[in-house]
């Protein structure tokens, strides 16, 4: 449930960068969508008009003022997109000017350009409605951008990362930014699980509690001796369901900071861990409740399957008590 802003100069490549981010996020099996500021401009008659300097016969519509955007509708759209996605990318030249949008952003990639590069790119654009009128760039567009960039640079919250729009977006940098934002670790693998790695992932200085659950292979079932468990999964869907689960954990327990969920596949011998869940929060109650909720819901909704292998060579596919058919 993270919102990333792509803000800054006109013709700086915001759309391309937003699409790149969505591509990189989806490559990690997470869902992402772009919400574009330009879809929330007010009707033309409600946009402020400004006389052209030196020529009062020309009126400019000021689409570079935050007042030209219906910020309430824009913010609502971001909230709605968050319900269905792990990450929402918000694209718009004035994101840093709307308090109701800015407060949602975990990070802002703010694109900058020099004036002449920007002008050259803008004159060849034909997709503006209304189309640029001569003088609009110098009187409206560029001064507005200078204000926005000045405001953004004054902010001391560390949210804004300034990127040079004359260069191609660097995937390595974008991946690093995404990783830092990433508060969930989801892993479904055949390797043995490292409990240490899970607890380290959820450790952070602002949390006072880590709650850890380790599910291990037990050596008996109704008097039969269990030799090992064999797990398989609908891996891609299981990863998606686990991301959705993280989403639901945070909706229920908003103070949860980080979540690590690791599930082992293949053969898991007696006493070894098949599942590890770690969550962290400032105070213990939330982490403890979240970890309990997480394991209950994992058993109920995530397409992972286990077979018990008994001493006498027989096997049995198991069924979680929590798993109710068609209850999704």
């Amino acid at each position: 449930m993270t919102v990333i802003g792509v803000a800054g100069v006109t013709c700086g490549g915001k759309t391309t960068l937003s699409e790149r981010l969505v591509h990189l996020i989806k490559a990690e099996l997470k869902s992402a969508v772009v919400v574009n500021q330009d879809d929330f401009f007010l009707p033309k008659m409600d946009v402020a008009r400004i006389w052209k300097q030196g020529d009062p016969s020309v009126l400019f519509y000021d689409y570079d003022s935050p007042k030209s955007v219906d910020a309430v509708r824009f913010a609502d759209a971001v909230d709605r997109a968050l319900l269905d996605n792990d990450i929402v990318v918000v694209d718009g030249n004035m994101l840093t000017e709307f308090p109701c949008i800015y407060e949602k952003l975990a990070k802002v990639l703010f694109i900058t350009l020099d004036k002449e590069t920007c002008r050259k790119r803008r004159v060849v654009r034909t997709d503006y409605d209304p189309a640029d009128v001569p003088g609009y760039f110098d009187q409206i567009v560029w001064p507005a951008y200078q204000q926005h960039v000045e405001h953004a640079k004054k902010r001391a919250d560390g949210k804004c990362v300034f990127l040079d729009g004359s260069k191609h977006p660097d995937d390595v940098l974008l991946q690093q930014i995404l990783r830092e934002l990433d508060r969930d670790l989801i892993r479904i693998r055949t390797d043995a699980i490292s409990v240490e790695e899970a607890t380290q992932f959820v450790t952070s200085p602002t949390n006072g509690a880590i709650s850890l659950f380790i599910g291990t292979t037990r050596d008996n079932f109704r008097g039969k001796k269990v030799m090992q468990l064999e797990y398989e999964a609908y891996e891609e869907m299981a990863a998606k369901e686990l991301h959705r689960l993280c989403h639901r954990i945070r909706a229920k327990h908003p103070s949860i900071d980080r979540i690590a969920i690791m599930h082992r596949l293949g053969v898991v011998p007696v006493t070894y861990a098949s599942v590890v869940i770690a969550t962290s929060s400032p105070h213990r109650q939330d982490a403890m409740a979240a970890t309990q909720f997480a394991i209950d819901e994992l058993k109920r909704t995530v397409p992972i399957f286990k077979k018990e292998v008994y001493e006498d060579g027989t096997t049995s596919w198991k069924e979680n008590a929590e798993c109710c058919r068609h209850s999704k």
Binding site: A238, S274, C323
Partner: peptide, 10 residues
């Protein structure tokens, strides 16, 4: 289109 028998993860 997947046929998913009873879940038994965890």
């Amino acid at each position: 289109v997947a046929v998913i028998p009873p879940l038994s993860g965890g």
